[in-house]
């Protein structure tokens, strides 16, 4: 038996919003420690890795590890049926071929349940090596979303350069070029408004703006986004999911032919 109850169904809605641009379907691996999802987009350029810890749920029970393959379009349809203030419970029997979503209104006067068919997905898990990154940048998630949106008007690629002074985002294309420089915040009153850079060595990498834009669909999950970069390895874009977990996106760089 698997059962996970979340008082804020809006978290689940936001998580889905954050992954459905990149993935059509995904396997939710449920175990005693929580729910994990790891999937690459069809082109194998980006990877989504999400973790929701069991202790972050209001109730969590998982007697046996289960992997639930879900069509994210169908899951989106179902979660649209939940009001933001509803309590959501996901339930499945061991070896089940369906999952049930139960939505309860805060006053318990309306209770709905939706059963969804599960899919058998061939899944390849990737081993992601633990990496010490040369640069780790934290900035307001809304600011990052704005930068990705603004620069994607110029070109298909965004160059991210990180030095100890700050971080620079650049793009160039047919209409011209654009550079956005963010300096490290000198005095930090509010952490969620700060730009911070932890740098071992400066890094400049080029990425496809289309993917960066897709990652920013997670903006509503967190005030802060963290970018981790090292020369010639995939970028990691991380958003915390409240007190319950995180979503990380990995993006392979573009390199000189």
């Amino acid at each position: 038996m698997f059962e996970a109850r979340l008082v804020q169904s809006s978290i689940l809605k936001k998580v889905l919003e954050a992954i459905k641009d990149l993935l059509n379907e995904a396997t939710f691996d449920c175990s005693d420690s929580g729910i994990q999802l790891q999937a690459m987009d069809n082109s194998h350029v980006s990877l989504v890795s999400m973790n929701l810890r069991s202790d972050g749920f209001d109730k969590y029970r998982c007697d046996r590890n289960i992997s639930m393959g879900m069509n994210l379009g169908s899951m989106t349809k179902i979660l649209k049926c939940a009001a933001n203030e509803d309590v959501v419970t996901m339930k499945a029997q061991d070896n089940a071929d369906t999952v049930t979503f139960v939505f309860e209104s805060p006053n318990q006067e309306k209770v709905s349940d939706y059963e969804m068919k599960l899919m058998n997905l061939d899944q390849e898990h990737l081993g992601i090596p633990e990496t010490e990154y040369a640069c780790v940048v934290r900035l307001p998630a809304g600011e990052f979303a704005r930068i990705c949106r603004d620069l994607s008007q110029f070109g298909e690629s965004v160059v991210i350069s990180c030095t100890k002074e700050g971080v620079k985002f650049s793009s160039a294309g047919d209409i011209g070029s654009a550079n956005i420089k963010l300096a490290q915040t000198s005095n930090v009153d509010k952490e969620e408004l700060a730009v911070t850079v932890e740098m071992q060595e400066p890094v400049t990498l080029t990425f496809a703006s289309r993917y960066l834009n897709s990652f920013t669909k997670a903006t509503s999950l967190s005030n802060v986004v963290q970018l981790s970069m090292s020369p010639d390895v995939p970028l990691v874009v991380e958003y915390r999911i409240g007190e319950i977990g995180h979503i990380r996106y990995y993006l392979a760089p573009k390199i000189e032919d």
């Binding site: 194998h44 350029v45 898990h125 081993g127 992601i128 995939p234 390199i255 000189e256 032919d257």
Partner: peptide
């Protein structure tokens, strides 16, 4: 000219 790398070149399937 830059070309897009695939994650397969960095991470191994387990």
């Amino acid at each position: 000219r830059k070309s897009q790398m695939s994650l397969d070149s960095y991470f191994k399937v387990i």
